[in-house]
Nucleic acid binder design. Structure first.
Lengths: 152, 152
DNA sequence: TAGCCCAGTATCGTTGAGGTAACCAGTATC
DNA sequence: GATACTGGTTACCTCAACGATACTGGGCTA
């Protein structure tokens, strides 16, 4: 609640954004990290979750509320004010995120290197030719993101 | 390699199959667990991964090979024989799976209970009415599965 | 010579998460 | 009266993952 959230909290360039680890749906892990420091308003959450639409943010928060990960508090004011806060259960996900971060720190470089090596390999066995299964041109599968970028 | 894999290794009824934690794509985590005990052949892997089609299993294994998680060894025999084995990198994912299991053990019941309570709630605030966002009738989102069922 | 086995391919269809764009209610301020 | 602000909602669309089904190749066996 204290300071505003860093709009660049999640760096889209950071390769850990392409990690093969996902908590909940696409945005859940990031929402947990946004709420780590305290309660936040709807529009506050939209800032670091760059590009999220209100529909998807609502869906994500509703699902998290349903699962007991966040609480939603609506104040009868004008303009409306709604605050979201992590429950202890939601906060417990931070341990999992921490584990994923630790894995990334230790092993993600090896994974990325293997990926590069494979993509530039002269392809020894004819059977190992893969047309283009996961080799999309723009970006890898991109399942989740757990590491805030540039804590500055 | 020793004993055949248990066809019921992954119980579709086990709620941990609906966990909000996913490693790689839908099947990657389960493949890692299948290979935990040693190298396995293509058709051997299909047994516990009930319902996976050869196309999708091939896709999954090729992606894992590309990322350096498994090695693929094709023997020039007839009938063909191909064996998949975890690399140390792939094996390192087991720590992450273990962390997810530990979280499930500690917190999944609370999550499921919150979900049930929410679904049967008389819905105090009109704003908290959710049409049916994640409340699919047959099963929850079902993102991944990490816990082998009935170790027997 | 007709199949069988293994490890896949090829083609097509379905599904659902996520994205786009527009709209809304109630108050307050201009 | 017009506009803005907050926290959404609604309808529509896209695309990639996943699934169903059928087929292949090549040596082996019956």
């Amino acid at each position: 609640m204290a300071e505003p959230l860093d709009p660049e909290m999640f760096d889209p360039v950071c390769p850990s954004s392409a990690l093969p680890i996902q908590i909940g749906d696409k945005w859940t892990g990031m929402v947990v990290l946004c709420l780590e420091g305290g309660r936040r308003r709807f529009n506050e959450l939209k800032v670091p979750l760059r590009g999220i639409t209100p529909k998807v943010l609502t869906q994500t928060l509703r699902a998290m509320e349903r699962d007991g990960l966040v609480t939603r508090t609506a104040y009868d004011e004008n303009p409306p004010r709604v605050e979201y806060e992590l429950t202890p259960l939601g906060r417990s996900l931070l341990t999992l995120i921490e584990a994923a971060r630790a894995w990334s720190k230790d092993h993600l470089p090896a994974l990325l290197q293997a990926r590069l090596a494979h993509d530039s390999a002269p392809d020894p066995t004819p059977l190992s030719r893969t047309p283009d299964l996961t080799t999309g041109p723009p970006s890898p599968p991109a399942t989740a993101d757990l590491t805030p970028a540039r804590p500055r």
